[in-house]
Design a protein around this nucleic acid. Structure first.
Lengths: 163, 163
DNA sequence: TTAATATCAGATTTATATGTCTGTTATGAA
DNA sequence: TTCATAACAGACATATAAATCTGATATTAA
């Protein structure tokens, strides 16, 4: 079980954070990203496609193709990825699952969860990829590549940029 | 999709809140509870069985059997139900899904989510069913029975207690 | 121009969560 | 004692999410 986001959303967030580390027009392949993040390649490919539809990333077909961020770092927030993948449901639904949970007919934790939910939204929306970039770099650096001859060159380029 | 808890957990919380409203040794049937809460009977039956295993409710077989709370109201907290149904995973796992998310290798929202996660835990554990009982009563009252001849008597008894 | 490469589109499979069904067992009321 | 009732146990079915596969299309380096 995931914490609050779907697996799809979690991996989308990871992939976008990965791209934010480089912040240039280089196109990174689904395969390369999946190896670095150690996540299923085909699943990630679908997710990146979906992110492309939402203009969060830009895709390029063919040789030397791949994915790159669709906007400047300061124009992408984590909440944008969450909304694209999971929608806004989790910010509207009752945490206890009651159907008609409103201010008039509140559940026993309506108010308390309301505050926590708003703080969660704030956490995801008050900063852009630019402000959290240093933290993203450190995190991505801490994830070691799966060793792979064919990616050796790419890896060295990536590592050089990361260090 | 649910907010943070599984459907099983949501329905368990609702059922326990329902029982907390009456706070006596009356045994309520799975069928009766499901009609009041408008949730699938057989699924709820399974959930109540599971709650019985965890001593959160007590079950009684046969005629005039059913389920009642296993402890006094002031000894049951919402977190007890959550742990019984979903475990503690959501309070330990990285909200972005990163595998090794620790203080040493934190994800970009590690600290912020840590605070929100702790506040969520606090919300579920600092009060017992006794303290939230008034709110529970109001909420259960706001849910109308599915009309059913065979439950008319039971319903009137319940409503009398609720009013 | 050709070959290699990478996304794209959609179908398919697998895993997990959710929900249902059936026969059995225990209980209490008539 | 008999009968109706309700939980119980485990199998079964369905829905959704997660993951994989295949052929088509676009791109570019050689």
């Amino acid at each position: 079980m995931t914490v609050i986001f779907s697996k799809k959303c979690e991996l989308a967030l990871q992939a976008v954070l990965y791209l934010s580390v480089f912040n240039d027009e280089t196109y990174f392949t689904a395969t390369g990203i999946s190896k670095r993040l150690k996540i299923p390649k085909d699943f990630l490919a679908k997710i990146l496609q979906s992110l492309a539809v939402h203009s969060i990333v830009i895709s390029k077909k063919g040789k030397s193709g791949g994915f790159t961020l669709g906007k400047p770092l300061n124009e992408i927030r984590l909440i944008d990825i969450v909304i694209a993948m999971d929608g806004l449901e989790i910010f509207h639904k009752c945490v206890l699952g009651f159907k008609g949970c409103t201010v008039e007919k509140p559940c026993p934790v309506h108010e308390k969860w309301g505050k926590l939910r708003d703080l969660t939204y704030k956490m995801l929306s008050e900063e852009t990829l630019l402000e959290i970039r240093d933290k993203s770099i450190e995190k991505i650096k801490s994830i070691h590549y799966i060793n792979d001859e064919s990616l050796a060159l790419t890896q060295s380029i990536v590592d050089r940029r990361l260090n």
